[in-house]
Design a binder for these strands. Structure first.
Lengths: 215, 215
DNA sequence: ATAATGTTTAACAGCTTTGTTAATACATCG
DNA sequence: CGATGTATTAACAAAGCTGTTAAACATTAT
């Protein structure tokens, strides 16, 4: 299938690439079960036999899509905080970076949530890697937060709850708001961007007062 | 089938009721598309022809399930705040009540989200009622919050953002955490309750410091 | 040119889905 | 009892799904 200089471009040929792109788009938007191989093929402009020719089964092409997104998936948990620079500045920029990342991959949270919910077996082989990443990150942040509490610099919060606050608030903007808007208010692209920016500011303000607000 | 005195039981007979119960359980857990009429019938212990006999189509039985849950659905937006009693006390109890309500109907948020996402047309007829409720509630809360800000009692927050904070935080605990636990950590029922209680406390603390914390 | 290899199509197989229907069992009531 | 309307079953039909296959077509190498 891979032709080097005759006709086809290096790597994948056109059909294979179009199928993968269509599959990625559909799976990300609708999840594994709600996407049919026929739909993917139609969107790619080929017969569905081609999908099976290149990727064998629906599950295998899904796994390939998962692979393509796994690094980003893990990155999505990642950069809530960085180094041992000033605590709040790095935390704030961490939340912001995380939110910005989600703005660039707005469908990723729902995609992962769907897969966890309906097809956890497809994540089985990734579990160790995900778990390991997660533990490393939480461990890292927990210790920094505890240090900061011990030094009396921030309020006494449960580090686990704080991370949950940040992550769920950020993800909510991408998991819950789009369907809600689908029912309640249709909205333009720029307006959407604006709303998300406001949301980001609010989330940061929320976390800041949780840590530094004196009651 | 089951007659009590040679008469049918008042209202629904046993089969009809069992089908409805099975349908409600399945639709709430898996949504419209991921539930098949055959699965419902099997769970109810009848042939799937009975489902069509009593409810005609899958869509019609789904609508009936939606009806049965609509009041609760609307209630789920409802009691974030009550009257003109002391502001924070009522807000706190409102958040708490809302959270407790969700604990009693933990599948409702995901159910509605699913329906908004994949079958918004099935919500079409409920839109006016939902919109009206929503507007009434937001209008009510906005004015109270604005009054409180004007009186200098709480920090200057965007009321819309504040309600989004509360609602998304509460819903997150039921939409995002269960699938996450499915993948990362299986957990007992009492432990789950404990986690949710902690989460509730954290959410309340978060909102409180947002409103009253001095930076 | 021709053989070998790779790509694409159309048709089909087997399964599952929603929904219908004809036949049958059943209860109730006159 | 027998007539009548209801409840139930099994079988079926049409459509869509995933996946396979044989044959046609294209490309490359010999």
């Amino acid at each position: 299938m891979v032709k080097i200089n005759g006709q086809k471009t290096a790597g994948q040929n056109d059909t294979e690439r179009k199928i993968m792109e269509a599959a990625e788009e559909m799976f990300l938007r609708n999840g594994y079960n709600m996407t049919t191989t026929t739909m993917i093929a139609r969107k790619a402009g080929v017969t569905h036999a081609m999908l099976h020719y290149y990727y064998r089964t629906k599950e295998q092409i899904f796994i390939k899509v998962l692979d393509r997104n796994l690094d980003e998936l893990l990155a999505s948990f990642h950069p809530v905080m960085k180094k041992d620079a000033p605590f709040w500045e790095t935390l704030e920029s961490g939340i912001s970076t995380h939110f910005d990342f989600l703005m660039k991959h707005p469908e990723l949270p729902t995609f992962i949530l769907d897969t966890m919910r309906f097809n956890p077996e497809l994540l089985e082989s990734y579990k160790p890697r995900i778990r390991e990443t997660l533990l490393r990150i939480t461990g890292f942040h927990f210790s920094i937060i505890k240090d900061e509490i011990a030094a009396g610099k921030i309020r006494e919060v449960d580090p686990e709850q704080l991370l949950l606050d940040i992550i769920t608030l950020n993800l909510s903007a991408f998991i819950m708001l789009p369907p809600a808007r689908k029912v309640f208010t249709e909205i333009s692209d720029t307006r959407n961007r604006q709303i998300l920016e406001n949301r980001k500011k609010e989330i940061i303000a929320l976390i800041k007062s949780r840590l530094y607000g004196k009651l």
